[in-house]
Design a binder for these strands. Structure first.
Lengths: 340, 340
DNA sequence: GTGGCGGATGAAAACGTCAACATCGAACTG
DNA sequence: CAGTTCGATGTTGACGTTTTCATCCGCCAC
């Protein structure tokens, strides 16, 4: 593989200086039409593409964005990342994607790598809001940050989802169906959506006049084994909840499996609302009532906010909140043996 | 935001030359322990990270890999990309990810962008094997290519999945259950897996002694509307197949919906085998018998092949094939009203 | 006719890093 | 003790691009 043609090769072939070639690429209006045509012809003939490394060294801009997600296989993450990539690419930015597998140490390493690579900004979906090493690494970073659905003590723009309102609506809906013993299963991660949902669940059940002692919040450690076990523990016994809200399709799977194992039919003997699991909501029987979000919108808005920040580095920090919504399907029903 | 510290700043603080600093980063053994310690301290104090653009300009290596996938939301793609990213990152490479949305023109544009960005190699999952513009762009690329599950007329290493054997096994299994009218639904994309599966389906049904005229191959254009329509058309009528093989979870959804709409119960009135849809296979009722692959393995091997190619640019091209396997679950049963 | 202006182009330098070569002293060899 | 080797460090220049400033030419206004 021979050396790639440089701006100098193009200049020589077109009989102009390198500056002129550069201008054809960056600000064509500065070059006369005849010269421009000659240069463009030379570029085509040689198969010239600008060397981004050299350009980025000179301009101190890499036109690339780093993106850190905990898990790309998780449907919402993939959908958000894909939408963001699409919009960043349209603006001429490339996406450097890293998946941390929920490991804060891996995230710190990834941040270092992205810093070395001179990304112009960062799309950040961290897996632990409380990790001090991570917070320190972020503060040291000194570049535009767009934080997704996290509360972090750093200067950054933030794009949040409003998890509370739709979840309250879901709880009211279940209470309206006569349920008095609810549970919510959340991943055991120190991140905002979990905090918000727990809070909204407790507030909404209290508002609905349900006995606080009969409501359960279960935080599940990662690993399918734990997920299944937690679901089985929750659903077994006479005081088991009659309705559960479950975050994430992996945990939903576990609950479906546990319910099947225990012979609890959905929705007749157990009502189920899935949170952020729209990838499987319409293939189960019955289909799942879901609290979901518009992931395409999230990715799009995130990309937009970051691009605006890059264009206006001095502007005040922004904090945007997008709605969640409830989608009623068939996984909820009245309480079995309702006393009403 | 002030200028980031450079190798020169570190050199000044540590009282050494820039080369020494460079060596501490790249080949520490060349530097005496005391000097090294002093340099490392200075790096920490200043928060120095090397500028990858400058390094890459000097070394002509970017230590980044481009990855082109048609759709990141598609579970197998996400799983493969994530596994590849993990292994590339472990080797010090970053992943530039682009999703083309099945648009060959977008793929050509993305290739141009990745070329400009001087990626050292490419992980390529194109959406059209036959597009001449794409093939031309690839030939022009002049960098190590790892082609995933495609047959492309370019010099490249190739990682294939063996789609045929497991699919033949699936057909034999269905024939063994008494099915005489089978169908296969494939996406209407000119790519190798579709070609392979079509061929294997036709060969296996013939081998099983089934009337060739009663077997149907349906190629479905993209779009959920088309998917549902195609499924309804296929399943309606007296000559409808009693068993279908369906590629991709989106099409599987459509078939499930159509079957439900037509009142055809699975597996009693319709047998279903899903191809590459393991994300939903265990949440449906009944769970789906599936032909699937080890996506983590694919991503890992792909990354490994590419890394080996980067280490040995002159080695002969490689062509690796990984197995598929069938996972029996509950979506297949004997033919309704079997004459046997 | 001269001064000035704007459009088109070029020369030179700089971005941050590393490779190639040079230097220097100390330790070893015979 | 001279010659050789080796380990540790430094000097210089180049990678490919863009920025800054300068030049040149023709044209217009006064």
């Amino acid at each position: 593989m021979s050396r790639r043609p440089t701006i100098r090769d193009v200049a020589r072939v077109a009989g102009v200086s390198t500056v002129t070639v550069s201008r054809v690429g960056n600000d064509p209006a500065l070059v006369s039409p005849t010269t421009r045509a000659r240069v463009e012809q030379a570029m085509r003939d040689l198969g010239y593409v600008a060397n981004a490394a050299a350009r980025s060294m000179r301009t101190r801009l890499s036109r690339s964005i780093g993106c850190l997600v905990p898990d790309l296989v998780n449907y919402p993450n993939a959908a958000i990342a894909q939408a963001a990539e699409r919009h960043l690419a349209a603006a001429g930015y490339s996406l450097l994607l890293t998946s941390s597998d929920y490991d804060p140490a891996a995230e710190v390493r990834a941040l270092e790598a992205l810093r070395t690579r001179q990304v112009d900004g960062l799309l950040l979906y961290v897996s632990d809001e409380t990790d001090p090493a991570l917070t320190r690494a972020l503060a040291r970073l000194d570049m535009p940050l767009l934080v997704l659905d996290r509360t972090l003590p750093v200067d950054a723009d933030t794009l949040l989802s409003a998890h509370g309102p739709a979840l309250r609506e879901a709880v009211r809906y279940l209470a309206g169906l006569g349920h008095r013993r609810l549970a919510i299963m959340l991943p055991g991660l120190p991140v905002r959506p979990v905090v918000e949902r727990r809070r909204a669940f407790l507030a909404a059940t209290a508002e609905a006049g349900l006995d606080p002692l009969a409501q359960r919040v279960v935080e599940v450690p990662p690993g399918d084994h734990h997920r299944l076990r937690a679901a089985q523990d929750l659903l077994a016994g006479p005081a088991a909840p009659t309705a559960v809200l479950v975050e994430g399709s992996r945990q939903v799977r576990a609950v479906l499996a546990a319910a099947r194992g225990l012979g609890r039919a959905i929705p007749h003997e157990l009502s189920l609302i899935a949170l952020d699991a729209s990838d499987i909501a319409t293939v189960t029987t019955p289909e799942l009532t879901t609290v979901t979000r518009d992931y395409e919108e999230i990715g799009r808005v995130a990309a937009g906010l970051l691009l605006e920040r890059l264009a206006a580095p001095g502007a005040p920090w922004r904090r945007v909140e997008l709605e969640s919504r409830i989608e009623l399907r068939g996984s909820c029903g009245p309480v079995p043996g309702d006393r009403g």
